[in-house]
Design a protein around this nucleic acid. Structure first.
Lengths: 127, 127
DNA sequence: CTCGCCTCTCACGTCAACGTCAGGTTTTAC
DNA sequence: GTAAAACCTGACGTTGACGTGAGAGGCGAG
């Protein structure tokens, strides 16, 4: 498939796909006219890349991790890297949970009837 | 206290503190010579700001939320905003957990004895 | 009073992951 | 064969949360 189709299938922009290739994250063959062609599994690869981006990893880190995910590389170093990133994500989740708890406290306070919240207020906000 | 002390106490740079003030997140009184002075509770305020930044909120969103946290504002709109941000954090946590699971799978594979991992490899990586 | 450190206000630099526009080529549909 | 749609390669723009000087002024110790 060509880049436009991959873009619509994955919901990622054409520009982003070209950027992924530039970063070495996504390979493509070229037609005689120079257009990129992708295999079907490129869709999953793009999803994976997006997932890792969403987890706060940088292009560089993803580039380092992908060979491990592809199971092409399996060294003590690569496993250490994998664990390091997993731990980083764990710490980030912990931070997010703390922020969430803090927000929940504020929400509980602001919604407690003792604090000026009327039934109609709540209902209006829900609408 | 002055800005340098607040910076060392919170671990945040002086530049960042000035930026927070510029964004309306952190108030300070001024000495006759124009220097910023902070009360002790500014430390907690900075921690809170940092927590919300870490949760992926923008300066603008934090600016909107702080009056709610201070319980100075309590409208249906403000409560809706609080819930919206909490839900956004929840979704982000979910995404992070998915990424973490994915990484865990890869780690499990790379560490399975069937995949070329020897005991010494693991021990070396742990050191 | 002066030395040294802290602080002040501009104001430009940075970095990542793209967005966007320009100008030209390839592919597809008819 | 031709027009439209999709694609190509640069290359500059964007955004947020600061970093990093430059040059000038404030402030406590001796």
């Amino acid at each position: 498939m060509r880049i436009g189709e991959l873009a619509t299938k994955t919901g990622v922009s054409v520009r982003a796909l070209r950027y992924y290739e530039e970063q070495g994250l996504l390979a493509a063959t070229r037609s005689s006219g120079g257009q990129r062609h992708y295999l079907d599994d490129a869709v999953d690869r793009v999803y994976l890349i997006q997932m890792l981006y969403a987890a706060g990893l940088s292009s560089r880190t993803i580039l380092d991790l992908l060979p491990c995910v592809d199971a092409k590389v399996n060294t003590p170093q690569s496993r250490a890297m994998l664990r390091a990133e997993r731990d980083r994500i764990d710490r980030q989740i912990t931070q997010l949970r703390q922020a969430r708890e803090r927000l929940d406290e504020v929400i509980a306070l602001s919604e407690s009837p003792a604090n000026g919240c009327t039934r109609s207020d709540t209902d209006a906000a829900r609408a």
